[in-house]
Design a protein around this nucleic acid. Structure first.
Lengths: 241, 241
DNA sequence: AAGTGGTCTAGACCACTTC
DNA sequence: AAGTGGTCTAGACCACTTT
């Protein structure tokens, strides 16, 4: 949980990029300069830069330096794994969450059985939340959080941020997720909840895991197609599977 | 272009995972064992494991080891940046490409001006390709490749793999991309080309860059919504921007 | 106590860019 | 030739899991 030196350096450089102390289309100080600046070894600086590189904040160019990329063009990537609370905050949106359902169940809801036919665990919390931006319903999030490892889930956590509750109050470490984006036909009820023109929505289905590889959450996130936008940054892989 | 020791190790371990020499839900040999096995330093082994970790092939668990994750569940992530040729090959699909257009232009096509209003460079190659799987048209790819850096583009490259041509014949290094996924209304022509029921398609719009941060390609990729599936693996970021 | 991964170091050599 | 990032090493110490 402790932040490493390289994490602190990465955070610091990211903040300086954000506040334009390091400007887009210019080069960061060289690795040897950063080494002096932060009083660490070069490998530690390099580890920090590697994180910024894979995030898409900088591009390392051999023989020249680390170029700061400009993200304004296409808005910051939405990919990765973050909560609605974090996203709406970092994008500066006027967002509200309305909790429609929160109940402990001993069987997986039909909707989840249909979309995740391989899941066996049954007991957990079912949460249904409507996300509004500028007062308009845009996303319907359906979550199932397994017990164990999640033994209680206060309404307050569902209203604000479940991830914040799990990470900061329960000490659980959210680590990775697999997501699948598809376009689906939806029923009257969902059409009404999201005020959709057509009976079609974008579905983002996720498996979410803790750092010990425990599956702790399934998510079905329904979006209004006319407002949906998924922005991603990807690097070409050297490892071909 | 030379492969590093850590790349070779990562490739080797990935291949062993693929061929189930290292099985899902079991642990890899420990870092010290891998160090002996490959005859390198521990940091070099760790660099290789880090690559596999960020790809989602393994999960490193402190005090325990590197757990091999099972990908079969949700099929291998499509995210990242790969060509249609690479993807269809790795998924073992019966895929064909029909080149509809390939021409050098001195002005950006209207479609690109509309979707990428900030782009200034004008000269390049416009390529329109229909992707078929099992004989059915599923994707329409529209590419614009800028000159410079791309001064020629043989029809043969467009028919097989533009990335293969650029990387292996022209020595260009494809490095990263930004993508935006949206759902769009389309015209009669596109509806006909993809045999769509509705006048709706999924659009994946990309900016593609070389390793020196040069923008070399814009892509508009139109998918049949009923067949579209984007699978992603994401790790929780420690760097909050 | 022994084994695992996580972090950090100081130094070396290499490849590429620039002057 | 000087400066940049890329790779690799051998060793150290720490935190966590297991026995």
């Amino acid at each position: 949980m402790m932040q490493s030196k390289s994490d602190i350096i990465a955070q610091d450089i990211a903040a300086k990029i954000k506040h334009e102390q390091f400007k887009a289309n210019s080069f960061l100080p060289s690795e040897s300069e950063l080494t002096k600046l932060y009083g660490t070894s070069r490998e530690t600086v390099r580890k920090a830069l590697q994180g910024l590189n894979s995030l898409g904040l900088i591009q390392k160019i051999r023989g020249k330096g680390s170029l700061v990329l400009n993200l304004e063009q296409y808005s910051f990537p939405i990919s990765g794994i973050s909560s609605f609370a974090e996203l709406s905050k970092s994008l500066g949106m006027d967002a509200q969450t309305e909790v429609l359902t929160l109940e402990k169940m001993h069987t997986l809801p039909e909707l989840f059985k249909e979309k995740f036919p391989n899941e066996k665990q049954q007991t957990g919390f079912y949460v249904e939340r409507l996300r509004k931006i500028d007062g308009n319903a845009e996303i319907l999030d359906c979550d199932f959080l397994f017990s164990p490892p999640i033994n209680e889930l206060p309404l307050n956590a569902a209203q604000t941020s479940i991830y914040n509750y799990l990470e900061n109050e329960k000490g659980l470490e959210v680590s990775y997720a697999t997501k699948a984006i598809t376009v689906e036909k939806v029923d009257d009820e969902l059409q009404r909840k999201l005020s959709l023109k057509d009976k079609t929505a974008v579905l983002v289905a996720s498996h979410n895991y803790l750092s010990d590889a425990t599956l702790f959450q399934l998510t079905l996130s329904y979006h209004d197609p006319s407002k949906f936008k998924f922005v991603d940054f990807a690097r070409r892989q050297r490892i071909r599977f």
